[in-house]
Amino acid sequence: MISVLYVPCGNREEAESISHKLIEEQLIACANIIPASDSLYVWEGMLEQTQESILLVKTSPEYRGKVMQRIEELHSYSCPCIIEWKIESVNPAYAAWVQESLKTTPKPESL
């Protein structure tokens, strides 16, 4: 099985930076970045409307906690949204690739 985390970021550069770090640390198999998303929300009593980049990361369920912790450490927001989507089914070959990628990701010096 795999775990997918949804993480809005302040901009594309932040999403890329977090993705690179998580891949270098062998915590995720891959990341997708949706470069532009309009977000509306109430923060500290004020209606906010901003543009964010959406980061989707794929990992194994046993890595989920460490991935969430690292995202909190790397993220610019004081209260980042990190949501796990429960995956009910997945292409078995893709799930195997995710598991294998976490074992064989090149070390940072070779990236």
Rank of each mutant, 00 (worst) to 15 (best):
Y63K: 07
P61A: 01
E44F: 03
Q49P: 11
E13W: 02
C9F: 04
R12D: 09
P80T: 08
E25C: 03
L74A: 00
A95I: 06
R12Q: 11
T59Y: 02
S19K: 07
G45H: 04
V90N: 05
E109H: 15
Q99H: 10
L47D: 11
C81Y: 00
V67R: 00
Q26H: 10
I82F: 07
G10N: 03
P106V: 15
M68F: 03
H20F: 12
V7K: 00
N32R: 05
E73H: 08
P35C: 15
L56K: 03
P106L: 15
I54E: 13
N32F: 10
V4K: 03
S39G: 13
S76A: 03
E14R: 01
S60E: 14
V4C: 08
L5V: 07
A96G: 05
Y77Q: 00
S110E: 12
M68S: 06
S101R: 03
S101K: 03
A31E: 05
L102S: 00
L74S: 01
W85D: 05
A29Y: 01
E24G: 07
V98D: 01
T105V: 10
V90Q: 03
L102F: 04
G45W: 10
S53C: 14
I82Q: 00
S60G: 04
E25S: 06
V90F: 05
P80N: 06
K103H: 08
S89I: 09
L47C: 08
Y77W: 00
V7M: 03
W97A: 08
S101E: 08
K21N: 08
E24V: 01
Y6L: 13
Y94H: 13
S19N: 09
I54L: 14
S39W: 10
I2G: 06
S110R: 15
A93T: 06
A36K: 13
N91R: 10
S53L: 11
T59D: 01
L74K: 02
C30F: 11
I87N: 14
W97S: 05
I18S: 07
S89K: 14
Q26P: 09
S53G: 13
S110A: 12
K66S: 07
G10R: 01
G10Y: 00
